[in-house]
Amino acid sequence: MSSVQSVENLTALDIAVLARTLDEAASSHREIDPLSPQHGFRLQQAYDIQHASIALRHARGEKAVGLKLGFTSRAKMVQMGVDNLIWGLLTDAMLYEEGAEISLGDFIHPRVEPEVCFLTSRDINGPLNLLEAAAFVDGVAPAMEIIDSRYRNFKFTLEDVVADNCSSAGVVVGMFSSRISDLANRGVVVRFNGRPVLMGSTGAILGNPLRSVVQAAHLAHRAGMVIPAGSLIMAGAATAAEALLPGIHVSTEIGGLGRVEFATGAQA
């Protein structure tokens, strides 16, 4: 008999246990083996685990601040070996001040990726199209996400990464502007200590990062959720991710949007 648990037998208690396993791994900065090979859950149950894990954060006092999209660029899909757009939830504990020094001891094996971040101006309570999306956005900013899979060696299935809140661990957001009408082909450069390590274009994000607002609206609607006014929507990475190192200055420049930066502590 197979040791993989049947998805039909994955109960609410099982989901709660798996959510707590991931939450404890994140809290203790301890990597674990992927969960899906043993428990065999499907994608919808992975989102159930994700939401249960985020609920544990909320119970500790963390506040919802928005959501992130993942695998919106072909580069990220190839790097991670998946082919589906995914999404996770952000809390205020994931926000780091722009320009701050960030301790890598807060993570397991962190990587950084350049992103575009939107700030919503109105509640998004249903599907949108691209023409409608701009009316729901108050501003756009250059941003970076620190991703940090809780799984050993950063290896996982699609279901595993979704359950793990799409590897979200930290967000650094630059200055917001109203330049939302022409985002389709802005140059992107990530530098470590002034040396370029990643280069790309905002066009890698669904062809136009504003489409991420459209996708977020559809995904939230299907999940029965409203995206409140004042929420952050992280549009997804413009390039593959780069592993962070101790004692470096990290910056991202996006043409026409500006620059965002942080430093890492001297010791992990």
Results as ranks from 00 to 15, higher is better:
1 M>T: 11
1 M>A: 13
5 Q>D: 04
12 A>S: 15
12 A>H: 14
13 L>Q: 15
14 D>Q: 12
17 V>L: 11
19 A>R: 01
20 R>D: 15
20 R>W: 10
21 T>A: 10
22 L>Q: 03
25 A>L: 08
28 S>M: 14
30 R>S: 15
32 I>A: 11
33 D>C: 13
35 L>S: 03
37 P>N: 11
42 R>I: 13
42 R>S: 14
45 Q>A: 14
47 Y>H: 00
48 D>M: 04
49 I>P: 03
51 H>R: 13
53 S>M: 15
53 S>L: 08
54 I>A: 06
55 A>K: 04
59 A>F: 09
59 A>W: 00
59 A>M: 02
63 K>S: 06
66 G>T: 01
66 G>C: 04
68 K>I: 05
69 L>S: 04
70 G>L: 01
71 F>M: 13
72 T>F: 08
73 S>W: 02
75 A>W: 08
75 A>Q: 03
76 K>V: 15
77 M>Y: 09
78 V>N: 10
78 V>M: 01
80 M>L: 02
80 M>S: 15
87 W>D: 12
88 G>H: 01
90 L>E: 11
91 T>V: 15
93 A>D: 08
93 A>M: 01
93 A>S: 13
96 Y>G: 02
99 G>K: 08
101 E>C: 13
103 S>Q: 03
104 L>Y: 13
106 D>P: 06
106 D>Y: 00
108 I>C: 07
109 H>Y: 12
111 R>Y: 00
111 R>W: 06
114 P>T: 02
116 V>G: 05
118 F>L: 02
122 R>Q: 14
122 R>D: 07
123 D>R: 10
123 D>K: 04
124 I>Y: 05
124 I>N: 09
126 G>H: 07
126 G>N: 03
127 P>D: 01
128 L>A: 01
129 N>K: 02
129 N>F: 05
130 L>H: 14
131 L>H: 11
132 E>F: 00
135 A>I: 00
136 F>L: 05
137 V>S: 02
138 D>A: 15
140 V>W: 10
143 A>K: 07
154 F>P: 00
155 K>H: 15
157 T>M: 13
158 L>S: 06
159 E>D: 12
163 A>M: 11
164 D>Y: 03
171 V>H: 12
171 V>C: 08
172 V>T: 07
173 V>P: 12
177 S>R: 05
177 S>N: 13
177 S>E: 09
179 R>W: 09
181 S>K: 08
183 L>I: 09
187 G>Y: 05
188 V>S: 04
191 R>A: 05
191 R>K: 14
191 R>P: 08
191 R>D: 10
192 F>L: 11
195 R>V: 12
196 P>K: 07
198 L>E: 05
198 L>H: 04
200 G>P: 08
201 S>M: 07
204 A>M: 02
210 L>E: 03
212 S>Y: 04
213 V>C: 06
216 A>N: 03
217 A>D: 06
217 A>L: 05
218 H>W: 01
218 H>S: 04
219 L>C: 11
223 A>E: 10
224 G>Y: 03
226 V>M: 04
230 G>M: 06
230 G>P: 13
231 S>M: 11
233 I>R: 03
236 G>Q: 03
239 T>F: 09
239 T>K: 06
240 A>V: 13
240 A>G: 09
242 E>N: 10
243 A>Y: 14
244 L>S: 06
246 P>E: 07
249 H>T: 09
250 V>E: 10
252 T>G: 02
255 G>K: 12
258 G>K: 14
259 R>G: 02
261 E>K: 00
264 T>P: 10
265 G>A: 15
267 Q>C: 12
